[in-house]
Simulated scan of single mutants.
Amino acid sequence: MLVTGARGVGKTTTARQIAKSIAFFDDLATLTVFQDSPEAALAQFQEPLLIDEWQMGPEVVRAIKRTVDRDRRPGRFILTGSPDPLSRSEFQSLTGRAAIVRLNPMTVRERTSRVAHPHGSTAVSNLLNGTPPQSRPEHVPDIFGYLDIAAVGGFPECAAESSEAYSQTWCRDYLRVLLRRDLPLFGSRRSASHFRRYLSAAALHTARSPEDGSLRNAAQVNPGTHRDYRHILLDLDVTVEVPAFINEEIPALAKSPKMLFSDSGLLIAAMNKPLAQLKLSGDLYGRVIETFVLNQLRAEIEALDRPDALSHLRTHKGVHEIDAIIETDDGGIIAIEIKSANRHRPADIKHIEWLSQKLGDRFRLGLVLTTGAYISHVRSKVTDKIWAAPISLLWH
């Protein structure tokens, strides 16, 4: 198993909970043993064996391939680390022999210790069943409270402190180290200052398509550099991309993904604006709220073993847009709009209504998530399946 995710997200700490032995490749003595005789070294450890920072000794991957081919028992090896371009090609030799698991930053539900039993019911699992929201959350923040929660983010170091000021300092330092230590792995000619400018522009364009040209123009880079930088951010797990919703019966659907920062704390730090200033900019904090909520949904859906269930919808020229589309096990569709306002407005449901007409019986539920305090059944002349609810429903 290869556990992927951003640096500092808790890959090693999590994997240690199921490993019986550990080999740390950032320890030179251990690394030397594996470089000298990788297969013999593997045999010295109890399984499951966790190999941390495996990319520092990529030759061990070939040894694991040979070992696994001889003994196909699952769960023998766990690899954690941050693959660079050179080691990634080595890992490809394990295709068909290894599972890849992405570890996301912690959700608010995890941070506040409201994690249910694996078979228990959660707000997102209820949505996947087409169940409308039922009970109002005990605590509902206002817009500025949500922004404070988003500023903390989901990295364990920040979640433990639960302080937006501490988290923002940590995230800014994290990005500086990333530029100094990891960017050179993608080519010695990469300019840290140019990439930093691109990073800030990407933060200001989160929750948009990376292919619409506005990000490239804002970052002042040519198409080739934009393409390279976009994939570096993905490789570093700083950003993720939500695929476009596909339905052959609906014409003019755009196929471009939506780019998101993988953590809202990192996003705010990359915007390079004080939190107090961000709270006075409706357009910017709207993007932060959308990114924050989509990451809560994305992590919950992946934890339910439905990594391909989340998408976004946009028709050409943006005539119709829906922030999140979730496909249920039986092919039903849940449509979600995310709003930073404290109440829903008639215009907030028009795209959901349009989609319900297009899908017919496949449409199971429409949901408008707001910074308001109440759950309500939204009046519509088109469908009786639209509800409005507080964002905090996702973790209560």
Rank of each mutant, 00 (worst) to 15 (best):
F25G: 00
L280D: 14
D27R: 14
I301A: 00
R196V: 09
G120C: 07
G224N: 12
T112R: 13
A150G: 07
A252S: 15
P223T: 11
A270P: 01
A63C: 10
F24C: 13
Q296V: 08
E138D: 11
S89R: 14
R114A: 14
L394V: 09
A299V: 08
P251M: 06
H396V: 08
G57F: 03
S256G: 11
A219E: 00
Q35T: 12
P251N: 07
V124Q: 00
H320P: 00
A254P: 01
G282W: 10
H139I: 13
S311P: 05
R136P: 03
V240P: 00
T80E: 08
F34I: 01
H119L: 13
P251W: 06
N295W: 07
M106A: 08
I375Y: 10
D142M: 09
E157N: 13
P243H: 04
S209L: 06
S167R: 01
Q92E: 15
K11W: 05
P307V: 08
A150T: 01
T370V: 11
A388S: 15
E337S: 12
F363I: 09
R88V: 12
A159P: 03
T371A: 10
E211M: 13
D305G: 11
I301W: 04
F25N: 01
L253Y: 13
A373I: 07
A373C: 07
S113A: 14
F155K: 03
L175G: 05
S163P: 02
G10M: 02
A254I: 05
G154P: 06
A98T: 11
L50V: 07
C171W: 11
W387P: 00
L178R: 09
I325P: 01
D173S: 15
P38V: 02
I100Q: 09
A99F: 13
F77C: 00
L199G: 01
L369Q: 03
R114G: 14
D237H: 11
E353F: 08
G130Q: 06
S82G: 06
W395S: 00
E90H: 15
G120I: 04
R180M: 11
S162W: 09
E110R: 11
L313P: 02
I338D: 03
R76M: 10
I289A: 00
G372T: 04
V108P: 04
I22Q: 13
R180E: 12
S380K: 09
I325W: 00
C171A: 15
L204R: 14
K258F: 08
D36N: 13
T315Q: 12
L86H: 10
L297D: 01
G331R: 11
L278I: 13
E327R: 14
L79Y: 02
E249H: 15
V242D: 02
D323P: 02
V177M: 13
R111Y: 07
